Simulated scan of single mutants.
Amino acid sequence: MYRFLLTPRWLGILALTLVAAMVMVALGNWQLDRYRGRTAVNERIDAGLRMAPAPLHEALPAPTGGPGTAGPPASEERTFTRVTVTGRYDTDNIVLVRGRTAESKVGFEVVTPLVLADGTAVLVDRGWIPPAPGGAMAQPQVPATPTGEVTVEGRVNPSESGAGTVTRREGRLETRRIAVPQLARELPYPVHGAYLLLDEQTPAADPAFKAVPVGHANNWQNLGYVVQWWIFAAMTLFGYGWVARREARRLAGITDDRPRDRAAA
């Protein structure tokens, strides 16, 4: 009844079906790996919120190059670690990161280099502020930067990718992404290879700043894709079986030589 499955045509259909199912299973496995990776990131974010702050040097290697260079990035295990560090803000090199959203409003994040006692610096994202009247690109009025020694507590964030150009406008640097190596080239000292997202500051930060949360990765979306691809693979195999069975029944009907009841027909 199913000998037709051994014909070249049906063997070709079977091969294509198996290849398609294997590709879908592989795509599901890839999404499963992404789900596990994003879940691990979320767990590190949550752990960083619970932990007591450690000294900066325990989480982020100091830069060893000269002025205008960035140090090595934080290891994966140390990313989102909560740290504390003391230094002085460099008010001559404030960075405005435009096109950032908070509470559905577009504005700027203010990143300021914190210069440490050893002459190196770490970039500190002090928070979000709205633009000046005139549109989302209007340069904002930046709250006063504390002078003198400042102690910062924050979380280690990796350098952002996909950065555009860094420009200087009205005495301040502007960019769209916090790309540490690119920003380091504009600064007169070596810079640590990751930036800090401010949690607390002594003296206290200006209340005009809105805290920037660490965004959790959407790992459940990847898990949904896993289920989707594996269901597609199962449907592909089921579809092959259903079509083969229908063809077998059709052939059985054609070769059935038993007399039919014309009246019943």
Rank of each mutant, 00 (worst) to 15 (best):
P131S: 15
V97D: 08
P73G: 07
S161H: 11
T101I: 13
R88W: 03
G48Q: 00
T165A: 14
G171I: 08
R168Y: 06
T81C: 07
P133E: 00
T151C: 02
R169L: 11
L96H: 10
D90K: 06
F108G: 05
E170D: 15
V166H: 11
I129Q: 03
H57M: 07
D118K: 12
T145C: 04
M51E: 15
R88E: 12
E109R: 14
A163P: 12
G162R: 15
T84V: 11
G171H: 04
A59K: 07
A144T: 15
S161D: 13
P61H: 09
L116F: 01
G148H: 03
R50W: 01
T112K: 02
R126V: 08
T91H: 08
G162N: 14
A102P: 00
V111T: 11
P146I: 07
G66K: 00
D90G: 10
G107F: 01
G107W: 01
V83H: 09
R155L: 15
P143L: 04
G87C: 03
P67I: 02
G65F: 08
E77D: 13
A132L: 12
R169N: 13
V85R: 07
A52M: 11
D90T: 08
A121N: 06
T79N: 06
T167F: 07
T64M: 14
A62E: 12
G162V: 13
E170Q: 12
V152L: 13
G99H: 03
E58N: 15
D90N: 10
A132S: 14
S161R: 14
V150N: 08
P63M: 06
E103A: 15
P73R: 07
A136Q: 11
R78V: 01
T81E: 13
G68I: 06
Y89S: 03
L116A: 00
M137F: 10
Y89K: 01
R168C: 10
R168V: 11
I129F: 05
M51N: 12
P53F: 10
A136L: 03
E58T: 15
K105G: 00
L114C: 06
P67Q: 02
G87Y: 02
G135Q: 09
Q139R: 14
D125F: 09
V95S: 05
